Simulated assay, not measured.
Amino acid sequence: MKAVILAGGLGTRLQPYTFFIPKPMLPLGNKPLLEYLVEWLIKSKKIDQIVICVSYLHRSIEDYFEDGSRFGIEIKYSRSDRPLATAGQLKTAANHLEDSFVCLYGDSIYEFPLNEMIENHIKDKAFISMALTRYKTNLKYGFIELDGSEKKLVTDWKEKPEISGLINIGCYVFEPEFLKIIPSSVSFGMDEAVRSCIKNKKKVNSYIVKDGSFMDIGDKKSYLEAYKQYVKRLGKI
């Protein structure tokens, strides 16, 4: 099976770190973030080729990974000349994808059994499988509830309530027909594409991962927290 890594974003929320380094190449411990993703895909023993979708500062990614032989896997590249959002970026790799494939975002760390997710997808004959995890947070403000009358009387005040639910962590298994839903050469989000599949009654499976199996590197705060964790893993030098 092939895997696609979406690594073409501008990394706006991580500026100024990303002025000269694309977000997937930011260091975590002694390696760039993207190298951990490549190693994780290889570890699954289900992936025999990786396609990296690149755009912003693409040469630093291509020069580092080259054809993948140094890492023990074949790596190809799909390049766009401008950001196309997540699904639009994936569409640029369509020529490489003839069968079921894995797709993941290049700004996260995953530590769950990908092989199990792939096997479930095939067994259930799903059109899409999405990796999800449980998440909870406290809202920043107090919420006020009103009654249903014309006077709109206040009936309750919930101060900074906690909400919880399942969130998408940006790792999917897709059938190749999914690519037909995505328009070419336009910015198109993965949420739009998946919602279209749900609307058209396609089978969208969930795969819920354990807490601690996912780390987002989306902004400066989360990046610094992840960086500290990986430096700690290295031990004393």
Rank of each mutant, 00 (worst) to 15 (best):
E145A: 13
L139R: 08
V51Y: 03
Y207H: 11
K152W: 08
D191W: 06
L84Q: 09
D63L: 12
T137K: 06
K31E: 14
L139C: 01
L28V: 08
E35Y: 07
E225M: 08
R195D: 12
K199L: 08
L104F: 11
V173R: 05
M117S: 06
K76M: 09
L166I: 05
H58V: 00
I167H: 07
L234S: 11
C53I: 03
T18R: 05
G170Y: 03
K136Q: 13
E74K: 15
D147V: 03
F112R: 11
A93C: 14
I163T: 11
S185L: 08
Y105H: 09
G235N: 04
N95T: 01
E225K: 12
Y135L: 09
V231S: 07
A131H: 04
K199C: 00
Q89E: 12
E111W: 02
K45W: 02
N138T: 10
P32W: 10
L104D: 08
M130A: 10
Y36M: 12
A87C: 03
S196R: 11
E192C: 03
T86M: 06
T137I: 09
K202F: 10
I181C: 02
P161Y: 09
M1E: 05
P183K: 00
L37W: 01
C171S: 05
K180T: 07
K140I: 09
K210T: 06
G8S: 15
I75R: 11
P32S: 09
L34G: 03
E62R: 12
E162S: 13
T133S: 13
Y56N: 15
P16W: 03
F188Y: 15
P22D: 02
Y110S: 01
E192D: 05
D216N: 15
D124M: 13
F178T: 10
K180G: 03
I5M: 01
I50D: 06
Y110C: 01
Y135A: 14
H58S: 11
S80K: 09
S44G: 02
L97R: 12
I122D: 07
I75P: 03
M1R: 03
K221C: 04
P83W: 01
K46V: 13
R82L: 01
I169T: 06
G148T: 11
I5P: 02
K221D: 13
Q89P: 00
M190L: 13
S196A: 10
E162M: 13
M130T: 13
W40L: 04
E192A: 10
F143V: 15
Q49C: 12
P176N: 14
S60L: 12
E35D: 10
I118V: 15
S44Y: 08
E145S: 14
K23G: 07
